[in-house]
Design a binder for these strands. Structure first.
Lengths: 203, 203
DNA sequence: GTCTATAAAGCGATAGAC
DNA sequence: GTCTATCGCTTTATAGAC
């Protein structure tokens, strides 16, 4: 009784199609990606794609869902660190992830298609922003329990903290614009950490 | 010598085309909008569109640029208000703007096309996020001058403040997901204002 | 400038052989 | 399952009359 997994069986060609489709969809967008292009990139014929996926929509959905499922966890923070160091560590991990080319591409294409494919928007939200909020909320909860911060609502604090990381710097990266001189990831993180620590200092 | 404006002359049909194209592009996205659809909505023939705009790309660019130029100013805040009330007022204006259907659509389509049309991404950034940051930075600068807040870098503070407004609530709206019960615009604003006031309280 | 009509190309999807 | 070949449709863009 050892079923390794549910869902469609893994197949070399199927994986090649998904890999090629992922690159194409994330780089070019949904509409600008043709099934011919995916077939060529994957080294298969177009008919083979349709043997595995009933339509372009469903191929796109399979790509997005696969990526959502494989999204990494932010990992539990080192419990020996104080509030500042803990927040800095988690912020560095989060910002590095958010600013990665793959995450930015994913964000662009999912946002663009969100109204036409609501279930993909939901899957993206749950595996990305919602998950991050929960994990970072747990960290604030722990810092509160330790008495290092006084946060009445840890998830609201997480929301604020993440928001202060996703600002101008993120917007410029998302839009493909160069960063301003003097703006660095570390600087943004330090400022956000400092603001949180000051605002939620215990009385 | 009274030139009313530079650029292409205003024409009834031209404006009708731009209006129809704006609705279509913002609602359906760039690729999903056909020139036939724009022609029908505008009540003109497709050839007339091409008489005014050389290509679909340029029509799209004209739509985006027109909207960027007409983007409203957030207005100067009432100088008799204290820090909390000032920040609350400006946050309410900003969040209402950001969450409007037109602004969300604009954000979706520009982000989606940003890599393929870098000049549009730039125009959007300058007229939207950059402008907001400057105006809100000026408000923090004024609050600092008045001694109500101690902000060493007003534009960095503006960045943080805006970031705390554009969080989970904004993301859900952007993705077309329903809002969580209990999450309200006013609540988010109050929390953001409180966090800023606490973090930047004068010593 | 504005129209009707059409060109030329690309698209998603399928038929049928193997 | 996988291929080649092709269907049927939509697309952007243009030609030519008025």
């Amino acid at each position: 009784m050892s079923k390794p997994k549910t869902g469609p069986k893994p197949s070399a060609k199927r994986e090649a199609i998904l890999d090629a489709a992922q690159i194409a969809f994330l780089e070019e967008g949904y509409a600008a990606t043709s099934m011919d292009a995916v077939a060529t990139k994957a080294g298969v014929s177009k008919a083979t794609i349709y043997a595995h996926f009933d339509s372009k929509d469903l191929l796109f959905a399979a790509v997005i869902h696969r990526r959502c499922e494989s999204s990494e966890i932010y990992a539990t923070p080192d419990k020996t660190l104080d509030a500042r160091a803990t927040l800095k560590a988690v912020a560095t991990r989060l910002m590095t992830l958010l600013l990665s080319p793959e995450a930015l591409s994913m964000y662009r294409v999912v946002v663009a298609e969100s109204l036409r494919q609501p279930d993909l928007a939901r899957a993206f939200y749950e595996s990305g922003p919602a998950r991050g909020k929960i994990e970072i909320g747990a960290i604030f909860s722990e810092l509160h329990r330790r008495g290092e911060l006084a946060v009445s609502d840890p998830w609201q604090a997480a929301d604020q903290f993440v928001g202060m990381l996703r600002t101008d710097y993120f917007m410029r990266a998302l839009l493909g614009l160069a960063q301003k001189d003097g703006q660095t990831m570390d600087g943004i993180i330090d400022n956000a950490v400092e603001t949180m620590v000051r605002a939620y200092a215990p009385a």
